[in-house]
């Protein structure tokens, strides 16, 4: 029995209000955060932890708190397990959440995950009581290792962060989905609504988008487009698509034609 289309996404036993996770990085103005959140209706909203030079940055937090969204702090920019663990611990202290989007970047040009450091950090954070959602490669073997380490979900990349290239290897994403029992969140590479829909059609449980929304010409409208793309893709996945065929199959009856 397939999931009912309206089945809610649940991560670590917490039922979430949608299947779109939203990153806030790159929005030109904090004043856009509220309207974008209203259009996206996100399940989780990511933020980064950075050195505070003034409390003006705090206005972001007040907007997010007013919207009553569940925060997902990330460890973006961390290059080692040590940095990522400290960043997660700081986020827990600052924001009062033990959820973390774990990122350990191995290469500042590609921003691809360093999966060795990632697994090390995931093991440490799970031991420390965190709900860990790791940003990882589209490799089902690594995904399974992360789940074995206790991660609550896995977040494979569709293509490099901020690239907007969409899902470059749909077979790998489907293989990740088949390899693990936890939710799979397509993270990174989403450029537009059809990318999000494809990820969902492949069986992903959710999609995380940041740049696709925040750097769109009209972030509010793109936020809505992605929400609808995620929903359309989820419905299509649940409905069960027709098999691909290399030959035509007429949909009109061949009998009774006028000749």
């Amino acid at each position: 029995m397939p999931d009912h289309p309206v089945t809610a996404l649940s991560i670590a036993g917490v039922e979430l209000p949608s299947r779109l996770l939203l990153g806030t990085g790159g929005l030109p103005r904090v004043s856009l955060v509220g309207p974008v959140l209203a259009a996206a209706e996100p399940a989780l909203v990511t933020v980064s932890m950075r050195r505070a030079s003034s409390l003006a940055d705090g206005s972001l937090l007040s907007v997010l708190r007013e919207a009553e969204v569940r925060l997902l702090p990330n460890t973006a920019g961390c290059l080692s397990a040590r940095e990522a663990v400290l960043t997660a611990e700081l986020a827990r202290e600052a924001l009062g959440t033990d959820w973390v989007k774990l990122e350990v970047i191995g290469d500042e040009a590609s921003l691809l995950p360093d999966v060795v450091e990632l697994l090390d950090a995931a093991e440490q954070l799970v031991r420390g009581g965190f709900i860990v959602l790791p940003y990882t490669t589209d490799d089902p073997v690594i995904a399974r290792r992360l789940v074995d380490a206790g991660c609550a979900a896995v977040m494979p990349l569709g293509s490099p962060i901020g690239s907007g290239l969409g899902v470059l290897n749909p077979y790998a994403i489907a293989a990740v989905r088949a390899a693990v029992e936890v939710p799979v969140v397509l993270d990174a590479g989403v450029g537009t609504a059809s990318d999000a829909a494809l990820a969902m059609e492949l069986g992903c449980d959710a999609v995380l988008a940041a740049t696709a929304v925040t750097r769109a010409d009209d972030p509010v409208t793109m936020a809505r487009a992605l929400r609808l793309g995620v929903e359309a893709g989820r419905l299509a996945h649940t409905a069960g698509r027709i098999p691909r065929s290399e030959v035509a199959r007429a949909s009109s009856p061949m009998t009774g034609r006028v000749s």
């Binding site: 990153g23 904090v30 990511t46 980064s48 050195r51 505070a52 940055d57 702090p73 962060i161």
Partner: peptide
Amino acid sequence: VPRSVWSAPLLCDGDVVDVVTAVQGG
């Protein structure tokens, strides 16, 4: 350093302190 001990006199000469907050991020 948890908030519960922010009023304790624990800083020493030469300490390296990081103060962080949430900013926009993906």
